[in-house]
């Protein structure tokens, strides 16, 4: 059966368009608050609306659960998505590919940059213990991981990357207040431009964190964004992919070093 091109949300019947939302209004609980919630839902495009739950939070706020029918009809042809363009490899396959193509261990330098002290994401990808049942990159025999930890200055990160002859930098950013995460990545990209020796192949800049937009990698000067739920294997598979392996895409700037 082919997938229909035009779809609406599915409550309990095809095409019913039913959705559920919850929100709080700064309105004291009472009939006026409920009417306000219904009106708000209508203005969101829900019609009819059903305010099924209203509860005061303190004296000044009311919390609502609202059901309603959305008039939106979605054209799936308009959907844009970045799909993983590389195969997911096992640790064994990653090691094999790195050894046979790179002929040395691949070096990965990771840090959280700037004010961000949260290493949970970084450690999930790098630490042996890993994440979601997968061991971290430290456990890959053919990867050499240098985990610099929290709050590393961008220029210091690049300096260490030069010393270690890094193939990839992993920058993890959790804190997003006033777009600190975007700013910190741009600082690393700028430090790479300024501090990387001329003529040497630049390392990849991989960025991870829960609030990054995967399509915004280039705008930050990064090569790839990994979002919430990324596992170490995905990162390792991507690194192998950029070697032009196993499918020889060969287009990436790192390929210069591989053939050298």
């Amino acid at each position: 059966m082919t997938e229909p091109r035009h779809v609406r949300p599915y409550g309990d019947t095809t095409g019913d368009g039913m959705v559920q939302v919850s929100f709080t209004l700064p309105v004291p609980p009472g009939p006026r608050a409920e009417a306000a919630a219904a009106l708000f839902a209508q203005k969101m495009g829900l019609d009819p609306t059903f305010v099924v739950h209203a509860k005061g939070i303190g004296e000044r706020f009311t919390f609502f659960v609202v059901y309603g029918r959305s008039a939106v009809i979605l054209d799936l042809d308009e959907v844009q998505v970045i799909e993983r363009e590389f195969p997911l490899l096992t640790a064994k396959e990653v090691n094999l590919e790195v050894r046979s193509r790179l002929k040395r261990r691949m070096v990965i330098v990771g840090a959280t940059v700037g004010t961000d002290a949260h290493t949970v994401g970084l450690d999930a990808i790098l630490n042996v213990k890993g994440f979601a049942g997968e061991k971290g990159l430290e456990s890959y025999r053919e990867l050499r991981v240098v985990n610099l930890g929290a709050q590393v200055d961008a220029t210091e990160l690049v300096r260490r990357a030069v010393d270690e002859r890094a193939d990839a930098l992993l920058v993890s950013q959790v804190v997003t207040q006033r777009d600190a995460h975007l700013q910190h990545v741009r600082e690393v990209a700028a430090a790479l431009d300024a501090g990387w020796p001329a003529g040497a192949a630049r390392p990849l800049l991989l960025v991870g964190g829960p609030r990054f937009d995967p399509s915004a990698a280039a705008s930050m000067g990064a090569d790839r964004v990994f979002t919430k739920g990324t596992t170490p294997r995905e990162v390792a598979s991507y690194l192998v992919h950029t070697l032009g392996l196993p499918a020889a895409s060969g287009s990436h700037r790192r390929s210069a070093r591989v053939s050298a």
Binding site: S22, F23, T24, K55, I57, F61, F63, P210
Partner: peptide, 13 residues
């Protein structure tokens, strides 16, 4: 937890 800073309603719930 881990998704957004808790909403007022999250704390109440």
């Amino acid at each position: 937890e881990g998704i957004v800073t808790p909403f007022l309603s999250d704390r109440d719930l």
